[in-house]
Write a protein that binds this DNA or RNA. Structure first.
Lengths: 192, 192
DNA sequence: CCTGCATGAGACATTGATGTCTCACATGGG
DNA sequence: CCCATGTGAGACATCAATGTCTCATGCAGG
């Protein structure tokens, strides 16, 4: 029967299109639907059959970004072990989605007062809880609010993704640089 | 003669329009020329007489951002005293322009391969030189490249401006949070 | 071989932003 | 008072992106 074939093929194509679109829109956030389609190797008509308009595409990208963030949070086990190790795991797990996240981070301003951001709210809460745990355990300083630390994590991820894309930093250093700066800061310390 | 009056009035209006446009575009980067005009309290026609199109407006905003960054760098005296104090002064001086910088930071991707970015190159070099000086003096760690520290500074500034705009952090904490995170990191230390 | 179906290509109308124009107003200087 | 100039309002054409449509093609399954 053709029903199963239809579903499976659409699913893999849909995911491929989303990945390609994310990669393109990360570099050029004003890319045309035609450019997105050509980058994915499909026609504009097919792109429109899968995503009814640019809005739907960005929404799907947002859903993908939320799903990847949740998956990264699950894989990072933010409640286990020292908080600093959990932050390290989180950034490592979230690295593959950094480009997509950077795009969504700058694009989210357009979705003011929408409903989907409750997904982001939940992610914010989980990350903030991680920082709060680190503060309670005495690992993290308490004069920087969890909300700001979360925001800074997003900003550093976006900067890192952008810097890697521009060739200013090596991709292999991505996680290290973000973790070290976010946790350790730029100042040189006596005791490591 | 009307020539002087023409110049002076245009100059102050132009600056006011730029400030308003910067504030608006920071919140809504896709704002229409009409919205920009109304936000500035002028008509679309007058806006068009001052800036021949959206492109010219963004270019002018970029020039303004570059000028403010240069001025902040000059005022911060990046070559004097401990590097960490110079970084603190730099962030404090650059704070009023943070919103504009955040907008340009996300918009700059559109100006790939243009000529104006040589202004940014010069600013990058000055900031990188500051971090390099801190590394040579032993104040800053050497495993984080000056390029990355500069990029991180931009990212934290953008995050801070965005967070303040969203009300997630208090405006008065802006400089402190950025300086402390960038230099000190999130980890709690024994010796301050 | 034949049929159904997804696709690609392209035409077409629509929409929104933009650039350009004209005209009336009002404000300030001669 | 009169005139010049900047301005606001609006009409209009333009242009690019978009959404929708049709049709031919290629391909897989029966």
């Amino acid at each position: 029967m053709s029903h199963m074939g239809y579903c499976c093929l659409m699913a893999v194509d849909r995911d491929h299109v989303l990945r390609t679109a994310a990669a393109l829109l990360t570099r050029k956030s004003t890319a045309t639907m035609d450019e997105v389609a050509r980058a994915a190797g499909i026609s504009r008509a097919t792109l429109h059959r899968q995503f009814a308009g640019r809005d739907a595409l960005v929404r799907a990208l947002e859903a993908l970004g939320i799903a990847e963030c949740e998956a990264a949070l699950d894989a990072a086990r933010p409640d286990e072990g020292p908080a600093r190790d959990a932050v390290h795991r989180l950034i490592r797990e979230i690295e593959p989605a950094a480009g997509l996240l950077a795009f969504l981070y700058t694009e989210n301003q357009l979705f003011e007062g929408e409903e989907q951001n409750q997904g982001w709210t939940r992610i914010d809460e989980r990350i903030e809880a991680l920082f709060r745990r680190g503060q309670r355990s005495g690992e993290f300083r308490i004069d920087l609010s969890p909300a700001w630390l979360t925001e800074a994590l997003y900003g550093l991820m976006a900067s890192g993704a952008w810097a890697v894309g521009e060739g200013r930093v090596a991709p292999k250093d991505f996680t290290y640089m973000i973790v070290e700066l976010l946790l350790g800061g730029a100042l040189r310390r006596e005791e490591p």
